[in-house]
Amino acid sequence: MQAIIATLGYVLSPSRDQVLMVRRDTRPDDLHYGKYNGLGGKLEPDEDVVSGLRREIHEEAGLDCTTVDLAGTISWPGFGRGGANWFGFVFRVPAWTGTPPAGNDEGSLHWVPVADVLAGQVPMWESDRHFLPLVFADSPTVFHGVMPFADGKALSWSFVS
């Protein structure tokens, strides 16, 4: 399978009870328009995944990651425009420096209570609700999952840890 390689990072507040998320609200034609998401994006050809995550978070939030923890990986076959396959490395970012701006080219940035994210009180991809409990678990273990998509909807979710 050929896939777009990407990173997805969840920057935690010092107390770890909030997470920095982007509300994708700048481009109405955005596949993610109106949804909250972690920070990240496509890997550049000359990058390892941690360098790519650090670059994306710096570009999107002006933060420098001092600690990153791999939460897991997810294969998203059929997720992208035109049914493109994506493969993501999902990270927790518990330590960082800097001050995030109010927003970026993709949308506004918000500190959101982790409890609200897990309770489904934040507009996001419904499919994110399957893996976010693994990302924010009290005693997390690294997971590896697959979530096939068709017509913009997840068909299933399975993982091993």
Rank of each mutant, 00 (worst) to 15 (best):
S75T: 12
F143L: 09
A71Y: 00
L63H: 04
Y10N: 07
M1N: 10
D116T: 09
G41L: 08
D138K: 15
G103F: 03
L31D: 15
T26Q: 10
V122K: 05
P100C: 01
H144L: 08
S75M: 15
T66W: 03
F136T: 01
P148W: 15
G52M: 03
F159E: 06
A6M: 07
F91D: 01
S127P: 08
T99V: 15
V117M: 05
L132G: 01
V90Y: 01
R27T: 11
P94Q: 08
G40M: 02
K42Y: 14
A71I: 02
L109R: 01
L8S: 11
A150Y: 13
A119N: 05
G9Q: 00
F143H: 07
E44W: 15
W111F: 10
S15Q: 06
S108C: 01
D116E: 13
E126H: 13
K153N: 08
G145A: 05
L53H: 04
T26V: 12
R92P: 00
H110A: 04
K42L: 14
F79M: 13
G80P: 12
L155Q: 04
W76Q: 11
E106S: 14
R23H: 10
G62I: 05
V50D: 15
D138M: 02
D48C: 05
A115P: 03
T73W: 04
G82S: 07
L155E: 04
K153T: 04
P101A: 04
L12N: 07
A154P: 04
D25K: 02
Y10V: 07
T97E: 11
P113L: 09
V122N: 00
W157D: 08
A150Q: 12
R92H: 02
V49E: 12
I57L: 11
S13R: 02
L31N: 15
G40S: 11
F159H: 12
E59I: 14
E60K: 07
S139K: 14
T66R: 12
E60H: 01
D48A: 11
D17G: 06
T141C: 03
L8F: 06
A137R: 00
M1L: 14
V11I: 00
G88W: 07
V112W: 01
D105G: 12
V49W: 03
V19F: 04
S75Q: 14
L31S: 15
E59C: 13
A3G: 10
N104C: 12
L43K: 14
Q121D: 14
T99L: 02
P148T: 03
A102D: 13
D29F: 10
D128K: 06
V19W: 01
F91A: 09
L155R: 07
